Simulated scan of single mutants.
Amino acid sequence: MRELSVGEAARRAGVAVSALHFYERKGLIHSLRTSGNQRRYAADVLRRIAVIRVAQRVGIPLEAVGKAFASLPQGRPPDKDDWAAMSATWREELEQRIAQLSHLKDRLTDCIGCGCLSLTACSLANPGDALGAEGGGPRRWTGD
């Protein structure tokens, strides 16, 4: 199996060397070490990096990518069937995010109109004053 230096892997994957180190710290990719303690990557890392980059572009958290990669065998690049399974898993999350953004887009004018001065009336941050049931003081809106 052909091994790639850090620079070669970064160049071929279209990422910075620091991105490779970051992905490795997150457990998304793995390297081997030479006797001189230099990193070397198996060529299959290029496909894993491609999957990571696509997932990042559509907003999939790296944690979700890591969970998907955990089900893949080591030493084999993700194939078409693997990608189909991963993308099917992420589809629901993306659909929920799209629905949230559409809801925000449709109500953004009302939100801007209120100026966030009346959180009891804000249909985005506090629909039906649901946060009031949690007691006084500020509450964090996470989109849920």
Results as ranks from 00 to 15, higher is better:
T142Y: 15
T34D: 14
R11Y: 09
G14E: 00
A19M: 05
V15I: 02
S71A: 11
E93A: 15
V17T: 07
Q56I: 06
V54C: 08
R140A: 08
T120Y: 01
Q96Y: 02
L94D: 11
D79S: 03
D79A: 11
G75H: 08
A68F: 04
R107Y: 15
E134C: 12
D110G: 14
L104S: 09
R57H: 14
G75Q: 03
D129Q: 13
S5P: 10
W83P: 05
D44E: 15
W83M: 10
G115N: 05
C122R: 09
V17N: 02
V58R: 02
M1R: 11
L117N: 12
F22H: 11
A50P: 05
A42E: 02
G115E: 06
P77A: 15
L117S: 14
I52F: 01
A133C: 15
C116H: 13
A99Y: 09
D44Q: 05
D44A: 07
A9S: 04
A68K: 03
L4H: 00
R40A: 02
L4E: 01
A130C: 11
A70Q: 10
R40D: 12
A121M: 14
V15A: 05
A70R: 13
E134R: 11
V6Y: 02
K80S: 15
D110I: 05
A16P: 01
I29A: 00
R11F: 10
A16G: 12
G66T: 00
L72I: 01
G59N: 10
D44W: 02
A133W: 09
T89S: 05
S35A: 08
G113P: 06
E92V: 11
E63A: 10
A99M: 10
G27V: 01
A16Y: 03
L28V: 06
G115F: 08
W83Q: 05
G128T: 15
N126A: 04
L94G: 14
